[in-house]
Design a protein around this nucleic acid. Structure first.
Lengths: 258, 258
DNA sequence: GAACGTTATTATGTCTGACATATGATCGTC
DNA sequence: GACGATCATATGTCAGACATAATAACGTTC
């Protein structure tokens, strides 16, 4: 491993370091109560000054991942303190398709709690503007139904638009969660054959129910949609474990050591 | 005014400045797309160096509140980018009992979506250890039933213990949300007469259903409990608006200007 | 006078070196 | 072996400097 004096990509000082360190913590390289390397040591490793490393630490401590004590150093906080609903934290956990299957299931289960309720609320509370956003997303999904890659973006937009249409700030905030979750699902899905076309009518049913302000129906339709998604995910994640898994733990060249 | 909302990160230096600035942003002093004062200006205002102000900025940018562009300065990001589920962000919004009533209602509505489902999941998934945690919290609630102030802590612990007992990481993460939400409710409740005793049996019913692994019953019992809570909150918040509200927007001496 | 290229300005981004501070570790004394 | 004073160390804070990029101001050209 060559010691780069200058990082090849001058992008994002503190954010870059925080990303690597955060992924390392979520990936288990540094476990709770472990000390992370000192500010100067990390500075050398990343070719950055102590100032920048400290700023990276602040980015992570704002997400509950680390804390510092004088003389003792900077350590990883207890797992319960981590802000698991933070989009970055979630992304670091889900990174590179090696996500623990348990987390993927937990996410799907949380979605089946939140999204049907959100669809029902949206059916009651939508305005012309928020309904139009859902309709636009759905139209784009129909147009992209032939390609899993193109389908992803309007799909996320559709689900977020429903959350927004609830007119509930807290519900709307779940959008970041859904976005991170769908990010990994899409990743899995694109590795498997089959266009997303079959799920289009299921989305359409949700939209229809919302449009006619049928809260009960929207709840049911979203439930059906998520059931299908859950089965898909389950199959893909399962096959990912059974067949596609590498024997050795993956060592990404770039982010191997932190 | 009373209730100190305990920040998740120890205050001092950067955290102190971030707290003031964050509250100012959430309080509307700086609106989206506004520039916050420059690093040197803020440093002067808080009697701190540029370094510390920059670290405070990183704490806030990790929560999606601000971002910086060279030459242009540091600005408040669009409201949709804010990490509303972050405990600190929520605390800043709920600060000092003047929370917008809409947010309080939104939080209650979100609770009625999440917590009954969580209770059902807990009924299915609890282990001896996680059930014991719920039972301990309930026992402490019974002992504190005579005092609204003493009741708060075990009450929060009870609801968090149920989330933990779901054995679902995402659900467990909602604990921080509930904690922040209950923090404000307690604040409101303690300003009004009446011991929390009546809610004890409602909590007990939830515990009982979970203990006998009756998911359906746990769901129903939690719904009943939250219904009562919602009515309480509604009455208190309403009276707060009608009578207790100050005519002028409050100017807390400490965090007025920032 | 309007369009356009050049220069100057400015706030953030980064680095360096220094000192302050608290606390765990070490050592010495009883 | 217990206890208190001392030392070492990693974080906390500061000041000053230069780099960088994006905007503002300026001046030239047509």
């Amino acid at each position: 491993m060559s010691t780069k004096i200058r990082p090849s990509t001058p992008v994002g000082g503190a954010a870059r370091i925080a990303g690597k360190l955060g992924a390392a913590i979520l990936g288990g390289t540094y476990k709770p109560h472990d000390l992370v390397p000192g500010e100067i040591a990390l500075g050398r490793r990343f070719g950055a000054s102590r100032t920048v490393v400290r700023e990276a630490f602040k980015l992570l401590s704002a997400k509950g991942l680390i804390a510092s004590r004088k003389r003792a150093g900077t350590y990883v906080r207890a797992r319960e303190e981590w802000h698991m609903l933070d989009a970055d934290v979630l992304a670091w956990r889900l990174r590179d398709g090696e996500a623990e299957p348990k987390l993927v299931f937990d996410l799907m289960q949380a979605r089946t709690v939140i999204e049907p309720a959100a669809a029902a609320m949206a059916a009651r509370a939508h305005t012309p503007a928020t309904l139009a956003a859902i309709e636009r997303a759905f139209a784009d999904m129909e147009r992209a139904a032939h390609s899993a890659a193109l389908f992803a973006e309007p799909d996320v937009r559709f689900h977020k638009a429903i959350l927004t249409a609830t007119d509930n700030d807290v519900m709307t905030a779940f959008g970041a969660l859904i976005e991170a979750a769908l990010g990994i699902f899409v990743d899995v899905a694109t590795r498997h054959p089959g266009a997303p076309a079959p799920s289009v009518p299921l989305h359409g049913a949700v939209l229809e129910a919302i449009r006619r302000r049928d809260a009960e129906g929207a709840h049911r339709a979203m439930m059906v949609l998520l059931d299908r998604t859950a089965r898909n995910v389950e199959r893909n994640v399962a096959s990912n474990i059974a067949g596609g898994r590498r024997r050795k733990p993956r060592q990404t060249s770039a982010s191997a050591r932190v």
